[in-house]
């Protein structure tokens, strides 16, 4: 084990997979200089400009070319720079990458990874801060991954590169510098398996990506008050680990879903609905969702904070869910 950053873990993941499989290559803007956040640092020197390709600012063509390159037998890793810019490649991802295998009757697969740094950072405003994971989870054909720790960024990126499906890979910008223990040996995290970040008996908090840290912080505060929250980091949104969540809520009888994205039609709605469908009779309190209000992310810090889910808000939501008054009358 060594302590490393979320960013360095991703560099290592790509390097290991490029070493292992000559069909793996990466394409995106400014990769030769390390990528906009430095997550590709050193890779072009090591693997050459053909396999770490600097592309024009042509998001549609970056994604579309990756589809063609995947159909023609390579395993491209696409860098979209900011998830907001991936919207310029929507046709290529949604209509082409996600559909080609099915439309063509299984004649080919599209093994590409679309890396899209997501989330709020510092004063990045409305076009550099979004979390749109629910859109992708809605699209048949796509896998959606959102790692929340350095070890998961290593193990999940490697699994995503090895997957034969198009994977939307959402790295959180606020986590690049986050440190954590990462195994020295080969480390693969299976796609679709959640991580129970903290065990607890009183309520289940389901979260992912940047909110994992915030939920763990909140769970610490709650523990001091005698409320033991179980924190489940989904890690993968499609497929999501329904069994893990059901088993936990079965025990705790209370569910709070926390995500950074706008609450309305966020992925928390899917989880809440699914749990309600399955465990309605077991629930001791209504399921609850906590996310951003339906406002664009603003620039000025006090305005930006209005869209931010804070540990305090998580604590308050957890208290409300566990308060006796929240109990469903039976």
């Amino acid at each position: 084990m060594a302590i490393t950053t979320y960013l360095a873990a991703s560099t290592r993941a790509l390097a290991e997979e490029m070493e292992r499989d000559p069909a793996v290559w990466a394409l995106g803007e400014d990769l030769g200089r390390g990528g906009v956040f430095g997550q590709y640092k050193g890779l072009q020197q090591r693997f050459g400009a053909a396999r770490i390709a600097d592309t024009p600012i042509s998001e549609a063509c970056i994604m579309g070319a990756a589809v063609g390159a995947a159909l023609a037998g390579t395993r491209p890793v696409v860098e979209m720079r900011f998830s907001d810019f991936a919207l310029c490649a929507t046709d290529e991802l949604i209509n082409q990458a996600a559909k080609a295998r099915f439309m063509f009757g299984g004649q080919a697969k599209v093994p590409l990874v679309a890396r899209q740094p997501v989330g709020m950072w510092r004063s990045s405003a409305a076009q550099h801060s979004q979390s749109l994971e629910a859109w992708y989870a809605h699209v048949p054909g796509l896998v959606v991954v959102a790692p929340g720790t350095p070890a998961d960024n290593l193990g999940l990126l490697k699994s995503a590169i090895r997957a034969d499906d198009p994977v939307v890979y959402l790295e959180h910008k606020d986590l690049w510098a986050a440190e954590g223990e990462v195994p020295d040996a080969e480390h693969l995290v299976p796609i679709g398996v959640a991580d129970t970040a903290r065990e607890g008996r009183d309520l289940t908090i389901v979260t992912w990506s940047g909110m994992r840290r915030r939920c763990l912080e909140a769970a610490g505060t709650l523990a001091a008050e005698g409320i033991e929250a179980e924190v489940i980091d989904l890690r993968t949104l499609w497929p999501w680990d329904r069994d893990r969540v059901l088993a936990s809520v079965e025990r705790t009888r209370r569910l709070l879903v926390v995500h950074e994205a706008v609450t309305v039609a966020g992925f928390g709605a899917e989880i809440a609905a699914f749990v309600a469908e399955h465990l309605h009779a077991r629930l001791a309190a209504p399921v609850r969702r906590l996310g951003a209000p339906r406002i664009p992310v603003a620039y000025a810090p006090p305005l930006e904070d209005m869209a931010r889910v804070s540990p305090e808000a998580i604590v308050a939501a957890a208290r409300a869910t566990t308060a006796p008054a929240a109990a469903i009358a039976s």
């Binding site: 589809v67 063609g68 082409q96």
Partner: peptide
């Protein structure tokens, strides 16, 4: 774009 990507793959191979 799909065509140029397929050509890119040919080049890489």
């Amino acid at each position: 774009p799909i065509a140029v990507g397929a050509a890119h793959a040919i080049r890489l191979r």
